[in-house]
Protein backbone atom coordinates (compact mmCIF):
# COMPACT_ATOMS: atom_id res chain seq x y z
CA UNK A 1 0.00 0.00 0.00
CA UNK A 2 2.93 2.29 0.75
CA UNK A 3 4.10 2.10 -2.82
CA UNK A 4 0.65 3.06 -4.08
CA UNK A 5 0.39 6.04 -1.71
CA UNK A 6 3.84 7.34 -2.66
CA UNK A 7 3.38 6.85 -6.39
CA UNK A 8 -0.24 7.81 -6.77
CA UNK A 9 0.41 10.38 -9.56
CA UNK A 10 2.23 7.74 -11.65
CA UNK A 11 -0.65 5.30 -11.25
CA UNK A 12 -3.24 7.97 -12.00
CA UNK A 13 -1.38 8.94 -15.18
CA UNK A 14 -1.10 5.29 -16.24
CA UNK A 15 -4.82 4.84 -15.59
CA UNK A 16 -5.72 7.71 -17.90
CA UNK A 17 -3.35 6.54 -20.66
CA UNK A 18 -4.92 3.11 -20.31
CA UNK A 19 -8.44 4.48 -20.69
CA UNK A 20 -7.45 6.58 -23.70
CA UNK A 21 -6.30 3.40 -25.47
CA UNK A 22 -9.13 1.12 -24.35
CA UNK A 23 -12.22 3.31 -24.68
CA UNK A 24 -11.75 4.34 -28.35
CA UNK A 25 -11.05 0.69 -29.24
CA UNK A 26 -14.19 -0.53 -27.46
CA UNK A 27 -16.35 2.19 -29.06
CA UNK A 28 -14.89 1.60 -32.53
CA UNK A 29 -15.32 -2.15 -32.38
CA UNK A 30 -18.99 -1.68 -31.46
CA UNK A 31 -19.65 0.86 -34.23
CA UNK A 32 -17.90 -1.27 -36.87
CA UNK A 33 -19.19 -4.67 -35.75
CA UNK A 34 -22.90 -3.91 -35.70
CA UNK A 35 -23.15 -3.30 -39.49
CA UNK A 36 -20.82 -6.22 -40.19
CA UNK A 37 -22.79 -8.49 -37.87
CA UNK A 38 -26.00 -7.38 -39.50
CA UNK A 39 -24.65 -8.28 -42.96
CA UNK A 40 -23.58 -11.69 -41.61
CA UNK A 41 -27.09 -12.21 -40.21
CA UNK A 42 -28.99 -10.86 -43.23
CA UNK A 43 -27.04 -12.52 -46.03
CA UNK A 44 -26.34 -16.18 -45.43
CA UNK A 45 -23.43 -16.32 -47.90
CA UNK A 46 -21.51 -13.67 -46.00
CA UNK A 47 -21.89 -15.28 -42.60
CA UNK A 48 -19.13 -17.82 -43.11
CA UNK A 49 -16.68 -15.27 -44.50
CA UNK A 50 -17.37 -12.64 -41.84
CA UNK A 51 -17.64 -14.85 -38.77
CA UNK A 52 -14.77 -17.18 -39.70
CA UNK A 53 -12.65 -14.32 -40.98
CA UNK A 54 -13.08 -12.31 -37.82
CA UNK A 55 -12.33 -15.30 -35.61
CA UNK A 56 -9.07 -15.72 -37.55
CA UNK A 57 -8.08 -12.21 -36.43
CA UNK A 58 -8.56 -13.37 -32.88
CA UNK A 59 -5.98 -16.10 -33.48
CA UNK A 60 -3.26 -13.52 -34.14
CA UNK A 61 -0.94 -13.08 -31.15
CA UNK A 62 -1.23 -9.54 -29.78
CA UNK A 63 2.42 -8.54 -29.44
CA UNK A 64 3.39 -9.63 -32.99
CA UNK A 65 0.30 -7.84 -34.32
CA UNK A 66 1.44 -4.65 -32.57
CA UNK A 67 4.79 -5.02 -34.31
CA UNK A 68 3.36 -5.74 -37.76
CA UNK A 69 0.83 -2.88 -37.75
CA UNK A 70 3.40 -0.04 -37.99
CA UNK A 71 4.69 -1.54 -41.24
CA UNK A 72 1.16 -1.51 -42.65
CA UNK A 73 -0.07 1.80 -41.19
CA UNK A 74 3.22 3.67 -41.58
CA UNK A 75 3.20 4.56 -37.87
CA UNK A 76 6.08 4.28 -35.42
CA UNK A 77 6.39 1.20 -33.19
CA UNK A 78 5.62 3.33 -30.13
CA UNK A 79 2.52 4.97 -31.63
CA UNK A 80 -0.67 4.51 -29.63
CA UNK A 81 -2.59 4.31 -32.92
CA UNK A 82 -1.26 0.76 -33.40
CA UNK A 83 -2.74 -0.25 -30.06
CA UNK A 84 -6.15 1.23 -30.86
CA UNK A 85 -6.21 -0.44 -34.29
CA UNK A 86 -5.07 -3.82 -32.93
CA UNK A 87 -7.56 -3.75 -30.05
CA UNK A 88 -10.36 -2.69 -32.39
CA UNK A 89 -9.53 -5.66 -34.63
CA UNK A 90 -9.76 -8.03 -31.64
CA UNK A 91 -12.97 -6.35 -30.56
CA UNK A 92 -14.47 -6.83 -34.03
CA UNK A 93 -13.36 -10.46 -33.99
CA UNK A 94 -15.52 -11.09 -30.92
CA UNK A 95 -18.32 -8.65 -31.61
CA UNK A 96 -19.28 -9.56 -35.21
CA UNK A 97 -20.20 -13.05 -34.04
CA UNK A 98 -22.11 -11.73 -31.00
CA UNK A 99 -24.05 -9.32 -33.21
CA UNK A 100 -24.95 -11.97 -35.78
CA UNK A 101 -25.99 -14.36 -32.98
CA UNK A 102 -28.03 -11.68 -31.18
CA UNK A 103 -29.90 -10.81 -34.36
CA UNK A 104 -30.45 -14.46 -35.24
CA UNK A 105 -31.90 -15.12 -31.78
CA UNK A 106 -34.84 -12.75 -32.33
CA UNK A 107 -38.19 -14.49 -32.56
CA UNK A 108 -38.84 -14.89 -36.31
CA UNK A 109 -42.59 -14.36 -35.81
CA UNK A 110 -41.88 -10.85 -34.56
CA UNK A 111 -39.76 -10.02 -37.60
CA UNK A 112 -42.35 -11.56 -39.93
CA UNK A 113 -45.10 -9.50 -38.26
CA UNK A 114 -43.08 -6.34 -38.85
CA UNK A 115 -42.70 -7.28 -42.51
CA UNK A 116 -46.45 -7.97 -42.72
CA UNK A 117 -47.17 -4.55 -41.21
CA UNK A 118 -45.27 -3.04 -44.11
CA UNK A 119 -42.02 -2.10 -42.35
CA UNK A 120 -39.24 -1.38 -44.83
CA UNK A 121 -36.01 -3.34 -44.20
CA UNK A 122 -34.31 -0.22 -42.77
CA UNK A 123 -37.22 0.67 -40.50
CA UNK A 124 -37.49 -2.96 -39.43
CA UNK A 125 -33.80 -2.94 -38.52
CA UNK A 126 -33.97 0.17 -36.36
CA UNK A 127 -37.46 -0.26 -34.90
CA UNK A 128 -37.60 -4.02 -34.38
CA UNK A 129 -34.42 -5.98 -34.88
CA UNK A 130 -31.78 -3.81 -33.19
CA UNK A 131 -33.92 -3.01 -30.12
CA UNK A 132 -34.72 -6.69 -29.63
CA UNK A 133 -31.09 -7.68 -30.16
CA UNK A 134 -30.03 -4.98 -27.67
CA UNK A 135 -29.44 -7.21 -24.65
CA UNK A 136 -27.38 -9.61 -26.81
CA UNK A 137 -25.33 -6.72 -28.20
CA UNK A 138 -24.76 -5.45 -24.67
CA UNK A 139 -23.57 -8.88 -23.52
CA UNK A 140 -21.19 -8.99 -26.51
CA UNK A 141 -19.66 -5.57 -25.95
CA UNK A 142 -19.18 -6.29 -22.24
CA UNK A 143 -16.99 -9.28 -23.14
CA UNK A 144 -15.08 -7.11 -25.62
CA UNK A 145 -14.61 -4.36 -23.02
CA UNK A 146 -13.18 -6.62 -20.34
CA UNK A 147 -10.73 -8.35 -22.68
CA UNK A 148 -9.71 -5.04 -24.28
CA UNK A 149 -8.87 -3.46 -20.93
CA UNK A 150 -6.68 -6.48 -20.11
CA UNK A 151 -5.03 -6.59 -23.55
CA UNK A 152 -3.92 -2.94 -23.48
CA UNK A 153 -1.20 -3.84 -20.98
CA UNK A 154 0.76 -5.88 -23.54
CA UNK A 155 1.70 -2.70 -25.41
CA UNK A 156 3.77 -1.59 -22.41
CA UNK A 157 6.68 -3.84 -23.46
CA UNK A 158 6.97 -1.71 -26.61
CA UNK A 159 7.09 1.45 -24.49
CA UNK A 160 3.50 2.63 -24.94
CA UNK A 161 2.26 3.93 -21.57
CA UNK A 162 -0.69 2.28 -19.79
CA UNK A 163 -1.24 0.39 -16.56
CA UNK A 164 0.99 -2.22 -18.20
CA UNK A 165 3.90 0.17 -17.64
CA UNK A 166 3.58 -0.70 -13.95
CA UNK A 167 4.42 -4.31 -14.91
CA UNK A 168 7.48 -3.46 -17.00
CA UNK A 169 8.75 -0.84 -14.56
CA UNK A 170 7.98 -3.02 -11.56
CA UNK A 171 9.73 -5.99 -13.13
CA UNK A 172 12.84 -4.05 -14.09
CA UNK A 173 13.17 -2.40 -10.70
CA UNK A 174 12.01 -5.44 -8.75
CA UNK A 175 9.02 -3.78 -7.09
CA UNK A 176 6.37 -6.43 -6.44
CA UNK A 177 3.89 -3.87 -5.08
CA UNK A 178 3.99 -2.00 -8.39
CA UNK A 179 3.10 -5.11 -10.39
CA UNK A 180 0.30 -6.01 -7.98
CA UNK A 181 -1.00 -2.45 -8.25
CA UNK A 182 -1.04 -2.87 -12.03
CA UNK A 183 -2.93 -6.17 -11.91
CA UNK A 184 -5.50 -4.90 -9.40
CA UNK A 185 -5.79 -1.59 -11.26
CA UNK A 186 -6.42 -3.33 -14.57
CA UNK A 187 -9.04 -5.62 -13.01
CA UNK A 188 -10.77 -2.68 -11.29
CA UNK A 189 -10.75 -0.68 -14.51
CA UNK A 190 -12.30 -3.64 -16.35
CA UNK A 191 -15.04 -3.84 -13.72
CA UNK A 192 -15.59 -0.09 -13.92
CA UNK A 193 -15.91 -0.07 -17.72
CA UNK A 194 -18.23 -3.08 -17.47
CA UNK A 195 -20.46 -1.26 -14.92
CA UNK A 196 -20.59 1.82 -17.17
CA UNK A 197 -21.72 -0.35 -20.10
CA UNK A 198 -24.41 -1.97 -17.95
CA UNK A 199 -25.59 1.52 -16.92
CA UNK A 200 -25.68 2.66 -20.55
CA UNK A 201 -27.65 -0.47 -21.41
CA UNK A 202 -30.09 0.25 -18.56
CA UNK A 203 -30.69 3.75 -19.94
CA UNK A 204 -30.96 2.76 -23.60
CA UNK A 205 -32.85 -0.51 -23.24
CA UNK A 206 -35.70 0.19 -20.80
CA UNK A 207 -37.66 -2.78 -22.18
CA UNK A 208 -34.93 -5.19 -21.10
CA UNK A 209 -34.77 -3.90 -17.49
CA UNK A 210 -35.18 -6.48 -14.79
CA UNK A 211 -34.69 -9.36 -17.18
CA UNK A 212 -30.93 -9.67 -17.00
Amino acid sequence: MNWLVNNWPTVWQALWSHLLLAVPAIALSFVLSVPLGWVAYRYRWSRFVLVTGSSLIYALPSLPLLVVLPAILGTSVRSSLNVVVALTAYGIALMVRSTADALAAINTDTVTSATALGYSPIKKLFAVELPLAGPGLLAGIRVVAVSTVALVTVSAVLGIPSLGTLFTDGFQRGIIAEIITGIVGTALLAVLVDRVLVAIGWLLLPWARGRS
Partner: peptide
Protein backbone atom coordinates in the same frame (compact mmCIF):
# COMPACT_ATOMS: atom_id res chain seq x y z
CA UNK B 1 -13.38 -17.82 -17.01
CA UNK B 2 -14.39 -14.30 -16.00
CA UNK B 3 -11.13 -13.70 -14.15
CA UNK B 4 -9.10 -15.16 -17.04
CA UNK B 5 -10.56 -12.60 -19.40
CA UNK B 6 -9.79 -9.69 -17.09
CA UNK B 7 -6.36 -10.91 -16.00
CA UNK B 8 -3.49 -9.11 -17.74
CA UNK B 9 -1.08 -11.81 -18.92
CA UNK B 10 1.97 -9.56 -18.74
CA UNK B 11 1.18 -8.77 -15.11
CA UNK B 12 0.98 -12.46 -14.15
CA UNK B 13 4.20 -13.21 -16.03
CA UNK B 14 6.26 -10.40 -14.50
CA UNK B 15 4.88 -11.05 -11.01
CA UNK B 16 5.78 -14.76 -11.06
CA UNK B 17 9.16 -13.93 -12.63
CA UNK B 18 9.98 -11.56 -9.77
CA UNK B 19 9.22 -14.29 -7.25
Amino acid sequence: TGAARALPTLGVLTLIALF
